[in-house]
C-alpha cells in the first residue's frame, strides 16, 4: 500500500493497546475504591484521558494518518474545552468580585449524613447548615399553610395518602404542641417506625428551612398542624 492513510497497524500493537486499556480500567476501578481526597477526580480523568488517547492514536490510527485528521480531532476537543471552561467561568464563579447576581445558592450536604466520610468527626448538622447559609433578606411572615405548601407537602400528605414521609392526617390528635415543635426543630428526636432517619433534616436543610424561618412562623406552622 503506497498511500499513508492505508497504514496497516500490526496485530501485536493492537493487542498491546487492548491489554493496556484493560489494565487501566482495572486501575481506575481500584483507585476509585480508595479515597484519595482531592485527587479522586483528576486521577480518574487522567486515566480516562490516557485510554481515550490510546484508542484514538492506535485503534483509530490517528498516529499513522494524514495530519489533517489529527487537526480536526484536536479542534473538536479544543472547542469542547472552550465551551466547558467559559461556561464554568460563569457558573462556578457566581458571586466573584463581591458581586452576587441572582442565581444559585450553592448547597452542600451536611457532612454528618454523608456516608463516605463516616470516619470523620460528625459535626452538628443543623449548626453547620446555619453557619454556611448565605444571608437572606427579611421576608414577610408566612402562614402555617404556606409553610406547609413550601416545605412539607412533597413528603407529608394531609389526606392519609402515602408519600415518602408519614401522613399528617390526624396528627393534631396524636401529638402535643410540644412534640410537634420538637419534631420540626429536631426531626431525629423521635422517628416514626418504618421511615428513614435524617432524611427530613437533610431535606429541610437543603431547602434552607431553618435559616429562613422565624420562630413566629414555626409557631404558626405548628398551629396549622394541630388543626389536622
Amino acid at each position: 500500500m503506497a498511500h499513508g492513510s492505508h497504514h496497516i497497524v500490526p496485530i501485536r500493537t493492537l493487542a498491546t493497546v487492548f491489554a493496556v486499556l484493560v489494565a487501566l480500567t482495572i486501575i481506575t476501578v481500584i483507585t476509585a475504591q480508595l479515597d484519595l481526597g482531592p485527587l479522586n477526580v483528576p486521577l480518574a480523568l487522567a486515566i480516562a484521558g490516557t485510554k481515550a488517547v490510546a484508542v484514538a492514536a492506535i485503534f483509530m490510527a490517528l498516529k499513522y494518518d494524514n495530519p489533517v485528521n489529527m487537526v480536526v480531532a484536536f479542534l473538536g476537543i479544543a472547542f469542547a474545552v472552550v465551551f466547558l471552561s467559559l461556561t464554568l467561568s460563569d457558573t462556578a464563579l457566581r458571586g466573584a468580585l463581591g458581586i452576587q447576581p441572582a442565581g444559585h445558592i450553592p448547597y452542600e450536604l451536611p457532612a454528618a449524613v454523608h456516608e463516605a466520610s463516616a470516619s470523620a468527626e460528625e459535626p452538628d448538622a443543623v449548626a453547620l447548615a446555619e453557619q454556611e447559609m448565605p444571608e437572606v433578606q427579611e421576608a414577610p411572615a408566612r402562614s402555617g399553610e404556606a409553610l406547609y405548601d413550601q416545605f412539607c407537602k412533597t413528603c407529608h400528605s394531609l389526606d392519609g395518602s402515602v408519600l415518602p414521609g408519614p401522613t399528617f392526617q390526624g396528627i393534631g390528635q396524636s401529638r402535643t404542641r410540644e412534640a410537634l415543635t420538637e419534631s420540626i426543630l429536631d426531626p431525629d428526636a423521635t422517628i416514626t417506625e418504618g421511615f428513614p432517619p435524617q432524611l427530613m433534616l437533610l431535606t429541610l436543610n437543603a431547602l434552607n428551612f431553618y435559616s429562613t424561618t422565624s420562630d413566629a412562623e414555626i409557631e404558626s406552622l405548628v398551629t396549622f398542624l394541630e388543626a389536622q
Partner: peptide
C-alpha cells in the same frame, strides 16, 4: 471511557 468514571466511580 469518560462516562464510566464520571458517573460510576467519582
Amino acid at each position: 471511557i469518560f462516562l464510566f468514571p464520571l458517573l460510576y466511580l467519582i
